[in-house]
Nucleic acid binder design. Structure first.
Length: 314
DNA sequence: GCGACAG
DNA sequence: ATCTTGTCGC
């Protein structure tokens, strides 16, 4: 029952999405807002979060959205939430957030309701922040909707505003010596959109870090390096590993030759991990008249619902 | 036809 | 994103 991907949205929808991005972009804060962000050792920082969405192989609709929270600086998982969702919007470069962000916001919202003390003080997002076609990537989008500091971490350079993955760029990468080394990514307008970061000593491919929300680029790069045990920042890496694992166990019985006849979909709770209450797949926009509003919009709907940001005191 | 294309 | 085994290195 692998549903197929919707084609490219009509220009009408893309126009609305661009308008949405332009509106929300005015709310982005691209500087440090928390004391720990300026501390040389990030003292005061205790919880870092990561989000990711993994897909079912032959299906472009079924996916697993995950949110994990790790302790800092130990980087041990203290919270995990994986849930199957049905994506409605197709993937369109430049509009990734409209496909994935609603589910990530839900996950954050649920964490706030059930384990507010575990709310991360910063979120690592798989994708770009201001390093984006219109300066508002998925990391900015999630940051604004949740009001949490966010860092965009992409694995490939998004070639926008004059940025090119050309010979010169590759040479700069080759010159990065040790983990933590980086160089600025300057857009055509002379603005630094992000940094290419060698996340650890023996990594060939850099990470492309950009500001998502409520954090300076300098702090974002420094913290990203501080969260890398491997090339991918541990919060995002754990979210990725666990979401894929969840999928593998969810349809492992049906997908491959059943080695274990008695294996339903019940196995999940290593730590303090709510496994998505196993209800109907989220993302099936209920109060939506079928036919109209083919794609979700949420800014003005979600913002008022979110709780006031007041970091839990320990 | 060719290059781009976050996830 | 996903399709995919072994292999080289610490």
């Amino acid at each position: 029952m692998a549903r197929k991907a919707s084609g490219r949205p009509p220009e009408e929808a893309l126009w609305l999405w661009k308008r949405e991005q332009a509106l929300l972009k005015t709310l982005v804060v691209d500087r440090d807002t928390e004391a720990w962000q300026r501390d040389p050792a990030f003292s005061g920082l205790q919880r870092v979060g990561g989000v990711d969405v993994s897909f079912v192989k032959g299906d472009s609709v079924s996916a697993c959205a995950s949110l994990v929270v790790l302790s800092y600086p130990e980087l041990e998982v203290m919270y995990e939430d994986c849930r199957m969702v049905s994506l409605t919007a197709p993937y369109v470069s430049g509009f990734l957030a409209f496909r994935e962000v609603p589910f990530l916001v839900d996950a954050v919202q649920q964490l706030w309701e059930k384990e507010p003390r575990l709310m991360p003080q910063v979120l690592f997002v798989d994708g770009n922040g201001v390093l984006h076609h219109r300066g508002f990537g998925v990391a900015c989008h999630l940051g604004v909707l949740t009001d949490l500091p966010c860092i965009g971490v992409a694995k490939k350079l998004l070639q926008v505003d004059g940025l090119e993955n050309n010979a010169l760029h590759k040479e700069k990468i080759r010159l990065l010596k040790a983990g933590g080394d980086s160089f600025p990514l300057m857009g055509g307008s002379g603005t630094v959109l992000g940094m290419a970061l060698k996340s650890h000593d023996h990594s060939t491919k850099p990470l492309y870090v950009s500001v998502g929300h409520k954090m300076s680029l300098e702090a974002a790069v420094r913290l990203t390096h501080g969260c890398c045990k491997f090339r991918i920042p541990e919060p995002v890496r754990q979210a990725d590993i666990r979401s894929r694992d969840y999928i593998r166990r969810t349809l492992g019985v049906q997908g491959a030759p059943a080695l274990r006849p008695e294996r339903s979909k019940k196995a999940q709770s290593p730590k303090a991990c709510p496994q998505g209450a196993s209800e109907e797949p989220a993302g099936t926009f209920k109060g939506t008249p079928s036919g109209r509003e083919a794609y979700p919009r949420f800014s003005s709907v979600v913002l008022p619902r979110l709780p006031q940001l007041s970091l839990p005191l320990d």
